[in-house]
Amino acid sequence: MTAPLDAPESAQHAEPEAIARGRRDTESRSLTQIAWRRLRQDRVALGGGAFVALLILVAVFAPLLTAWFGHPPNQFHQDLIDPATQGVLKDPDDPWSGIDPTGGMSAEHLLGLEPVNGRDLFSRIVYGARISLLVAFLSTLLCVVIGTVLGIVAGYLGGWVDTVISRAMDIFLAFPLLLFAIALAGVIPDDAFGLSDNALRIAVLVFIIGFFSWPYIGRIVRGQTLSLREREFVEAARSMGAGTGYILFREILPNLVAPILVYATLLIPTNILFEAALSFLGVGVNPPTPTWGGMLSESLAYYTVAPHFVIIPGLAIFVTVLAFNLFGDGLRDAFDPRSSD
């Protein structure tokens, strides 16, 4: 091959001028279009993407969905609960019928009921998706913004700026985050910064997760910027008289969109897990608002009488994380074909 190794794939098979000149304009594609074309051929990634899209729809339309089934997430169905064991009754009309091993799954209650007070699990999972996704998306956004800005500045300017930012990244990564989060949960007031109750709790979750995970994105962006900085188009921009701001945000940033998008997609499932972990530890939103992690935490006390109560939120977390990861992997392969084959 005569083409340099860093050239995009298509350049390595560059045709002689005559052929390329004769090609029609309609065949011109941006790199994003090429990536999209590759992504469409990746069934696994598309499956993941479809699930993610479905999940987002479910979360957005949660009130409609639960209204359709007629069970608000916090409605009690104590008549269906066995008062002795707190499990779900096999036959609602017969208080002595014993525990239903499926947890009361039926056409009426798709995923069964919670033990103790008999709330509809499907509704709670659907509402739990709202919190999980909201926190994961917002905290990822926070990560991306902080990480991109600091990473690009550190990578491009170098010198002492790079040293300061890179050491800051080290410190943030070494921070005992979980302990900090648990300690913080104990001292969160009922309202602060004009926010109260759940809004404040969500804000705290987003802040904790986003503010302490930015170095992951920051390091990737810094590394990419270091190599982009050496490309001749940056020198070309300087030779036209472009200022630092122009070079950073008009020349370099567009080249970082693909890696940032990919790592953001892979960071979302991590943040979903993080949120679940924090909710599990009781740092998350206040009951009775449902969250997947919170449900998992509650379920442990009843795993003998209601095993489905453990499995279903666990499965929700697992499938969501898996779907995001598959989609993210597919996205990465689509943008950088060399990583896959």
Partner: peptide, 22 residues
């Protein structure tokens, strides 16, 4: 900056001297 109008440069590597995203 204003003087840059009068001095311009053509770089060596046509694969890296054009921004692939523009």
């Amino acid at each position: 900056r204003p003087l840059r109008r009068d001095i311009q440069m053509v770089f060596q590597n046509p694969y890296s001297s054009l921004n692939p995203r523009m």
